[in-house]
Design a protein around this nucleic acid. Structure first.
Lengths: 112, 112
DNA sequence: AGGAGTGGTAACGCATGGGTTTGCAGGGAG
DNA sequence: CTCCCTGCAAACCCATGCGTTACCACTCCT
């Protein structure tokens, strides 16, 4: 049986740092350490992983320049850029959710 | 620093079976074993977990009827139902993604 | 008596995703 | 000479999510 496209979509963006990476990359091509400086909490290894997965999934393109010191650029593919409207939809829903949650007085934090 | 609403949205639906549960519950109120029959691959324990998390997050409402044999109904809250347009957007994107992926000839299966 | 159908919980195991640390290559700057 | 910058990889650890199995309580049906 085939997997639902919604599920596929979720799997593509559910890495811990992928949505933030997408946000930054939607702003334009970035170098590796540029991304690291934008997201200092992320380890180098994890950053590489997330980017590599997105590359494997066809969302991100990786360009290596044979220079010293090394230079590697990450940019969104056409497919990656096509995520933007959907992400905006998710953004709007998320904002509404947060508003609704705090209107309900519920502190839905995950630390019990 | 505040977490991005997109990230929040992802966290709410990224459980392994949550999108499928949402699909079924968008079709109307369901009893527990009714859901189990719709999704036989899911263990009872896991099913309970996913539903409980969605309840905690305010997406699902749980009603217990004091009958014998027990009867427990799960229905979407207003907030849960408000997910539908966003999920449809994700569905459409996912379909386009699959088409693009197989057009590119790439078998992006996760088993190397 | 025994089985099925109801909706659970508890104990356990395991793969995986993420995090930490360390090392490497090769040239430029102090 | 030594340190810094670039982007990466390998070895290791740990928490979490999911899965497996077993058990419970209560009633009706055969």
């Amino acid at each position: 049986m085939q997997k639902c496209p919604v599920e596929i979509t979720v799997e593509l963006i559910e890495g811990k740092w992928k949505t933030e990476l997408l946000r930054h990359l939607l702003g334009g091509t970035k170098r590796f350490n540029e991304l690291r400086r934008l997201m200092p909490e992320v380890t180098q290894r994890v950053m590489t992983n997330q980017l590599r997965e997105m590359e494997r999934d066809g969302l991100v393109e990786r360009t290596v320049y044979a220079e010293i010191p090394p230079k590697v650029e990450y940019r969104l593919t056409e497919l990656g850029r096509s995520l933007e409207p959907m992400l905006l939809e998710m953004l709007r829903w998320g904002e509404a959710y947060v508003r609704a949650a705090e209107a309900a007085g519920c502190d839905r934090s995950r630390n019990p």
